[in-house]
Nucleic acid binder design. Structure first.
Length: 242
DNA sequence: AAGATGTCCAACCGCCATTGG
DNA sequence: TCCAATGGCGGTTGGACATCT
């Protein structure tokens, strides 16, 4: 197999923003011949770029299957939910958003959602995906669309420190006695018309120096939006943690 | 009006798993 | 079996543009 090195030492390699005529060459070549090898494509298409650069330009910009326009609220909700599940595995997240690229989602998350999280006192850098949930189908995501009044996307535990999280009212949460400290939670609440929204609640501050009570929990939630079915929320939480 | 600052995103870099000579 | 090229991925950066002072 012929090798086509693609590295910084190649003096002929062009860099920087793509020019319209380069886009045209790449687009015309791929739509006509397809891609058999990215490494040999630049030469065949008459481009002074490396194969990697061509691949990136096609994947992130020229591919006609890409969706243009701003990311919708539904898409944002999905990104948040999937990020909780998969962490920074952008390519995996992008699989669930047809027409959106991993780069686009990554950029969107880093500059929009991260800022929102900061507003709600969440530090995504501390986030680690819950491997158990990653392995266990789409359970949390399914929850998000099937719970009519209260749903949540994910809970994670941290290995950093242990902290008791209890309910003082005999709920299901209490039956499991002790959990690892819940770090951050995304809780989505839908209204009567099943129009969902996504809000962020920092449970860490609630659990850092105190036992998290049912009323604490309810108070936290009510800070964001009125909740009609706290019991349902507790049940969901208990099911997921057990 | 102009400089400073912030936001956004295209593109590059480096790492790693896979592939195939 | 070894090893270098390749492709894919996530992290990061630089610059264009927008907004603020």
């Amino acid at each position: 197999m012929e090798r086509h090195p693609c590295n910084n030492k190649n003096p002929k390699r062009k860099r920087g923003l793509w020019l319209p005529h380069e886009d045209e060459k790449l687009y015309n070549f791929i739509t006509r011949f397809g891609v058999t090898s990215w490494s040999s494509l630049p030469k065949q298409a008459g481009l002074e770029r490396c194969g990697k650069s061509c691949r990136l330009r096609w994947m992130n910009y020229l591919n006609p299957e890409l969706k243009r326009g701003p990311i919708s609220q539904d898409e944002e909700d999905l990104i948040i939910a999937l990020h909780k599940k998969f962490g920074n595995r952008w390519a995996r997240i992008a699989e669930s958003l047809p027409g959106r690229t991993d780069n686009e989602i990554k950029n969107y998350y880093n500059c929009r959602i991260k800022r929102k999280n900061f507003k709600y006192n969440i530090t995504p850098n501390t986030y680690k995906p819950d491997e158990k949930l990653v392995e266990e189908s789409d359970y949390t995501l399914t929850m998000a669309v099937t719970q009519p009044t209260c749903y949540f996307f994910n809970f994670q535990s941290t290995g950093v420190k242990e902290e008791k999280v209890q309910s003082n009212s005999g709920s299901n949460l209490n039956s499991s006695a002790t959990y690892d400290m819940m770090n951050y939670s995304d809780i989505g609440i839908s209204n009567e018309n099943n129009e969902k929204s996504c809000n962020y609640i920092d449970f860490q501050s609630a659990t850092q120096n105190e036992i998290l009570t049912r009323s604490d929990c309810k108070e936290k939630i009510e800070e964001v939006q009125d909740v009609k079915s706290l019991e349902e929320y507790i049940n969901c939480l208990s099911t997921l943690l057990c």
